[in-house]
């Protein structure tokens, strides 16, 4: 894994070269320009949209929905996962249900959510929660179930109650799994918010992107896409930064095992 502190020059160069290719291809090909304006032009549009405040409200709405959906999903999934991982009987009760629901593409639930919740915030958040639940849930169950027997026996010999055992031993031991699930869910949550907004929203970046496309305003559409891409990128970086701090013990351990 790349150390987040060292700057990846090669990676950014390739990224820059691709942008340059896009810029040139668009500038020297008027036919293409209609569908794919030059990057510089899109960035200009984006700047204008931000300054005018037109896109900022959409961004704020998307971001809020994302936060609500993601954190709600994380809390529910960790609690549920801990219970299902910890209590064999609970797991055997719900295993089949989970195995059926999990592989279903989560966007397929959107029509159901629209039926039940109508269009609007609650529908989009509900769909986001549903979709981002799975990776955290599955990983938490796995992590809890894979906790070393010796570790649990250690907690027990120190007289921990089942509740404290879960909090002080099992969940920390499972935390690398949980974090993996949380990271996968991060992008899923953003996908579902945007998709939800496209299908049944009247505000938010997803709605904005589709709305601009329908108004044949490809410059604005691309500006929206770039903004949502940037949001995803920043959220992922932020996540990695937090993870590195919280899981410091783990990183050193992996680095040493790799040697």
């Amino acid at each position: 894994m790349n150390d987040s502190r060292s700057f990846n020059w090669q990676g950014w160069s390739v990224f820059g070269a691709l942008l340059l290719l896009w810029e040139c291809a668009s500038r020297f090909n008027p036919d293409l320009q209609l569908y794919l304006p030059p990057v510089s032009q899109i960035l200009g549009t984006l700047a204008r949209l931000i300054v005018s405040g037109q896109i900022v409200t959409h961004l704020a709405i998307t971001f809020t929905r994302f936060l609500e959906g993601y954190f709600l999903a994380a809390v529910i999934a960790v609690i549920l996962g801990a219970v299902l991982g910890y209590f064999r009987f609970a797991h055997s009760l719900f295993e089949t249900v989970i195995e059926f629901l999990r592989p279903m593409p989560s966007v397929a639930i959107i029509p159901v959510a629209v039926l039940l919740l109508g269009i609007g915030d609650s529908m989009i958040v509900a769909v986001t929660v549903y979709a981002s639940l799975w990776p955290v849930l599955i990983n938490t169950i796995d992590g809890v179930r894979h906790t070393e027997r010796t570790l649990i026996d250690t907690g027990r010999t120190f007289g921990l109650s089942r509740r404290r055992l879960l909090w002080q031993v099992v969940l920390p031991a499972a935390s690398p799994y949980i974090v993996t699930g949380l990271r996968v869910s991060l992008s899923i949550a953003l996908i579902l918010v945007t998709t939800g907004e496209m299908v049944a929203g009247s505000r938010g970046l997803g709605f904005f992107i589709l709305d601009q496309e329908r108004s044949m305003n490809s410059g604005n559409m691309y500006a929206g896409i770039i903004l949502v891409a940037g949001l995803g990128y920043l959220l992922n970086r932020l996540f990695l930064l937090c993870e590195e701090r919280a899981m410091k013990w783990r990183h050193g351990m992996i680095a040493r095992e790799a040697v």
């Binding site: 070393e148 010796t150 250690t154 920390p172 031991a173 013990w249 351990m253």
Partner: peptide
């Protein structure tokens, strides 16, 4: 296996 890896 018995030490808590997440604790110093």
């Amino acid at each position: 296996k018995s030490l808590f890896a997440w604790r110093s």
